[in-house]
Design a protein around this nucleic acid. Structure first.
Lengths: 188, 188
DNA sequence: ACCTGAACACCGTTCAAGT
DNA sequence: ACCTGAACACCGTTCAAGT
């Protein structure tokens, strides 16, 4: 039944993710995953459709690792927590994380994170019809930043990058706030 | 002599780039490149070190396609032009462009673009020791944005994305300006 | 329903051999 | 100096066959 298959699918994706973490993205092959699960490569095709869907599933798992902050925190704290969680996910899975930037943000797990950001932006006072735009800009930067850091694109150390994030946060939050203020004015 | 080899290397990289453009990144194989150049796969190894260095070279070529704006334009126009050029490069080479985000920004061609951004930021009044930081943030966003657009990560159309860039530009330039203003104050 | 063996059409890369 | 043939150790995927 579906339950059993789902479990097997999870096992397969977990194996795939840890192979990529341990031996790199190039080592993530159908055959290696099958080996780790203790099965023939061809047996995987029933659970994941093929190599590219396997990668989709792995990315999905990555997004599920992102912790969503409690709603009672201030919106500034919420955004900071989500950024931090995404960044640490990138550090835990530097090989796979960049794939996040190359695949459509249309999956269920992507929606989960996006909706959380939407809610936070709303509570920051951003106008409803501005929310998707601000989210796209924010996620593009944060994911890009985390991927760059984890992938070694930057040539500076972690302290400098902490400062980058602080600089961005300071100015971006100001932008959000002014967008929120505009809304207050015209809204009531 | 070196001249001849350089030309051959360029021919190889050009062939590689157009294969990726036409048939996708997966179709970019040593064998396919060799075929197009009219040679055996093993002959490529003298000019490009191997597959991963071939990809490095292709990324290098990509960066050389980015047009750097004339210095007499205003810094706002310069940044807008560079962003536009990067975005159109991404559209011309959507398969290869995302690699830009995964490889170190330490090559000669990367330096060429970065130095241009440095100069523009300087002329915008950004403090010398803030320049690398602002450049990292800016390039992370712009490259990430262009890669997301070209790779189909966004689910909205081009008009909305034009608006995104305008929104980011408006607020980011304001941030740069305020950083510049801080500098003026304390500087003289 | 689930897994396998055997096979197909590919890969990147090494190395000795040719010119 | 430059290129090739042959070979090695891999890939993803299909399909008929087994249980």
């Amino acid at each position: 039944m579906a339950r059993q298959r789902q479990t097997d699918r999870d096992t397969i994706l977990a194996a795939a993710l840890s192979i990529a973490d341990e031996r790199g993205l190039d080592a993530l092959t159908m055959r290696a995953v099958a080996d780790r699960v203790g099965v023939t490569p061809m047996a995987l095709y029933r659970y994941v459709g093929g190599k590219s869907q396997l990668l989709d599933g792995v990315v999905e798992r990555l997004l599920l690792e992102v912790t969503l902050p409690a709603g009672r925190l201030s919106w500034r704290e919420q955004l900071a927590k989500m950024t931090g969680s995404l960044r640490s996910t990138a550090r835990r899975h530097p090989e796979v994380f960049p794939l996040l930037m190359q695949r459509p943000a249309a999956t269920e797990a992507a929606k989960r994170v996006r909706d959380a950001v939407y809610a936070t932006l709303r509570s920051a006072g951003v106008a409803v019809d501005e929310v998707p735009r601000v989210e796209r800009i924010l996620s593009t930067f944060v994911i890009g930043f985390a991927a760059s850091e984890a992938g070694g694109r930057f040539t500076v150390g972690r302290r400098a990058l902490d400062g980058d994030l602080a600089w961005f946060g300071e100015h971006f939050l100001a932008a959000i706030e002014s967008a929120g203020a505009d809304q207050e004015e015209s809204g009531q």
